[in-house]
Write a protein that binds this DNA or RNA. Sequence first.
DNA 1: GTGCGGATCTCAGTCACGGATTCCCCTAAA
DNA 2: TTTAGGGGAATCCGTGACTGAGATCCGCAC
Lengths: 417, 417
Amino acid sequence: MTEIRTPSPRRGTNLPRMGDFNLTVILDAIRRSSGGLSRVELAQIVGLSPQTISNISRRLLDQNLIVEAGKEGSGPGKPRTILRLNPAGMYAVGVHLDPAVTTFVVLDLVGAVVRHSRINTPGASDPDGVIATVAAEIKDLVAASGVDPDKIAGLGVAAPGPINLEEGTVVDPPLLLGWDRVPLRDALAEATGLSTLVDKDVTSAAVAETWAGGPSGSGSFVFMYMGTGIGCGIVLNDEVVRGTSGNAGEIGHIIVDPDGAPCDCGLKGCVKSSCIPQVLVAQAEAAGVLDIERHPSGAPAVQESFAKLCEAAEAGNSKAGEIIDQSAVLVARAVAVVTNTLDVERVVFGGPFWTLLSQRYLDRVPQLLAENSAARQIHGVEVVGTGVGEDVGAIGAACLVLEHTLAPRAQRLLLEG
Amino acid sequence: MTEIRTPSPRRGTNLPRMGDFNLTVILDAIRRSSGGLSRVELAQIVGLSPQTISNISRRLLDQNLIVEAGKEGSGPGKPRTILRLNPAGMYAVGVHLDPAVTTFVVLDLVGAVVRHSRINTPGASDPDGVIATVAAEIKDLVAASGVDPDKIAGLGVAAPGPINLEEGTVVDPPLLLGWDRVPLRDALAEATGLSTLVDKDVTSAAVAETWAGGPSGSGSFVFMYMGTGIGCGIVLNDEVVRGTSGNAGEIGHIIVDPDGAPCDCGLKGCVKSSCIPQVLVAQAEAAGVLDIERHPSGAPAVQESFAKLCEAAEAGNSKAGEIIDQSAVLVARAVAVVTNTLDVERVVFGGPFWTLLSQRYLDRVPQLLAENSAARQIHGVEVVGTGVGEDVGAIGAACLVLEHTLAPRAQRLLLEG
DNA sequence: GTGCGGATCTCAGTCACGGATTCCCCTAAA
DNA sequence: TTTAGGGGAATCCGTGACTGAGATCCGCAC
C-alpha cells in the first residue's frame, strides 16, 4: 500500500494516431451540431484547413459514418454541402444490469434507440446461467432489430459498483449474491461474440449525456444519477472521469444532514441514509402518507411505493411534498460538495427515478446550489434534467462503445504499451 | 444561468503540435526518471522509434534543456549515453500570496530552489503599491540569484481562492480588502516583464508535487493542503484539474462532524468550522492547553499558537494530542469524500502546517481512509506526506510556469481558437 | 589485433497537414 | 437566355515528423 508503483510516463504520438484523432474530432463536431455542418464550417470550428477537412470527410464518407445531406445555398456562390451523421453507419448494444430489471437497447450512431427490451434481473447465483440468459436476450434483440451484425461495434454493460475496470469484473454486486469477481466482460464477449466494455452505471449515464444528451452533454458537468442508490458520473472538459479502477462517483457517504438518521458507516445523515428512495418511502410510511408494506420490500416494491409517494406529492399531499422537498435540499448539499470540489459549470439530473422528482427538484436545487457555490462570484452552475429518458443506464452502456470507438479522447493519440 | 453556452468542440491537431508534444513527452520521461535515461530506454518507454528519440534529443540538447551525462556500459556493445535534465536550462519565479507572509522562489528546471525570500504580506488596500512591492522583490530576488534573465521562463503566482483563471484576477481575497477583481496577472506581467500565470494555492501545490515531488507526484492523486484553510489540489492521470474557472478543490464545507460546531453556512461540523488551525487553537484555549490570546488574533498569531499546540501534543500533553488526533479523524472523512468521488490512488498531504501534523496524521489517516474507501476491495489508497517542504505554495507557483511550458498536457496538441 | 554486440546516426521513404491554384456550382444582373 | 461574379470543394505540390534499413561508432572479450 505504501509502495509507489513505477510511474508510467505518458507515451508519445505519431502520424497515424494524429490522423485518426482528427477524424474523431471532425465526427464529434458534426455529431454535436444540430443540423449537420458543411466542410467550410468544420474547418472554422476544428481549426484544420479546408483541404484536410475534405480528405477526412472522404474517409468518413467511405466508412459510411456520414452522408452528404443536401445543400445549403445562402446568397451567391456554390452552396455548401451539408455533412450529417449517418445513423445507420454504426450500431451498439447496451445492457443495464439493475437490481430490479435488466434493460437492453440497440443504439444507432446518433444515439437513437433502435430497439429495446427488458427482463427481470435473473436472481440466480449461477453466473454461467445468468450470462447465458443475458447473451440470449442480446442475440434475440439484435435479430429483431434487423440491424446488420457487421455494423455493430460492440456491447456495453452498465453495472452498479464497485467494479474493477481493468479486469472487467463486478465486485461483490448487491444484486447477484456470490458473484464476486466474475469476469463479466470476458464471459459476455465470448458468449455474444461482440467486443465488450463494462462500466459503472453512473459513468455510463454520464457518457449517455455526452453522446445523446445534446448541448447539456458538453464541457464539464456532473451527472446526478437518481436510482436505487444515488451516485454521480463526472465529465471534465468533454472527457469522462473514471478513476483508477472505474469507481469514481461514489458519493453515498457525503454527509448532508447533521441531524439525520444513522448510517451503516457509523455516522449519520449520509446521502445513502437520508435521500435514497428506500429511505424516503420509509419516511412516508412513518408519516402515514403511504400504507406500510407488509412484504419484505425488494427493489421493485420500493420502486412502486416511491412512485406512489411522488404522485401523492403532485396531488397536493403536503406531507409527501415535504418529504420530497426536504430530499431536494439534502441532495443539493451533496451536489454542492461535488461541484465545489470540481468547479464544474453544470449539473445534469437523470436516472430511473428522475422523472418522478424533476419538477420539485428543478424548482429548488438551482437556488440552493447557487447559494452554496464556492465560485458563485465567478460563474453560475446550471442545473438541468437530462434529455435521455429512464433508460439512461442501458443507453449509456451502448454509448460506452460509441464513445470508445469514436470520441476524440486524448488517450487515442497516445501510443500503446 | 439556464442557457447553455454553445459547445466548443475539441479542435484538431497538426504536425508541428505533434512534434512539440513528443518533445515534452520525452522531457517528462527524463524528468521522472531518477538518474537519467539513455535514448534506447526512452524509445522503449515512450513508444517512439530510436531515430525519433535521437532527433528530439538533439532538439532538447540544442535548447540546453538536457545534457549528455556520461555513459553507462554494461557488457559488450557501445555504452548508452545518459541524458539528464540540465538544471540550468530553464528557471521560473514563483510567488505565494498568503494571508501571513508572501514567499518568493527562483526554481531551476529540476525543481530545486535556487533562491528564496519572504516578506510580510503587504496589507495595504492600494493595489498599485502592493504590486509594485511584489515586483520590486522579484527583481531583487532574480538579481541576487545570479540567474540569466533570458533563461527565466516566467512568473507564477499562487493565491488563495476564489480566483478567475481566465481573467487572471483574484476575486474578493480575504487578505487584501477591496482588491476585488484586480487584474493581478496582467499587472504583474507588466511590472516585471515576465509572462505571468495566476492560479490557486492548492492547485499550485498539486503542480509542485507533480514537478518536484518525485514518484508520489505521478498518476492520479489528491493534494491535501493544510494551511490557514484546508483545500485540495486534484491531479488525474498526470493532469491537474482546475475546473471551469480555476476554483476546483474547495472542500471547506464538506461536513465531517455531524455533532460539530456551527458553520457560517448554516450547517455544522464543516471542515472549515472544525479542522482548520484557527478552530483547533480555539479548542485548545478552551481546554486550557493554550493561554488565551488577548490580542485580536491575526494569521501570524494563529500560526504561532498552533505551533505551540502541536509541540504540546508532541511533548505528551494528552489533551493537545486528542485535539490533533480528532482533527485527523475529521480530515480523513473529508479526504474520503474526495477520494471516493474521484477514485484516486493516492493522497498527498502538504502545506505550511503539514510538518507540524505529519507524525500523528500519518499514524491515523491511512487506516481511517482504508475503512471508508468505496473501492477498498479493488485497490488501496496510499497516504504520503509531500517531499516538497513548507514553501509548496511558492514552489508550486513557479512550477505552474514549468508545467505550462514543458508538461505533456493533451491541451498542447490541440489547435487554438 | 580481431570479432562481436549494442547504441546511435545517416539516408531515404511514408504519410498527414497546408498553401496555391483550379474546377465547379449557384445567384444575380444584363 | 446569357454572362459575370462569388464562394465551396478538389487537385497538385511542398513541408515536416515519424519510421525502417543500413552504416557507423564504441567498448568488451578472446
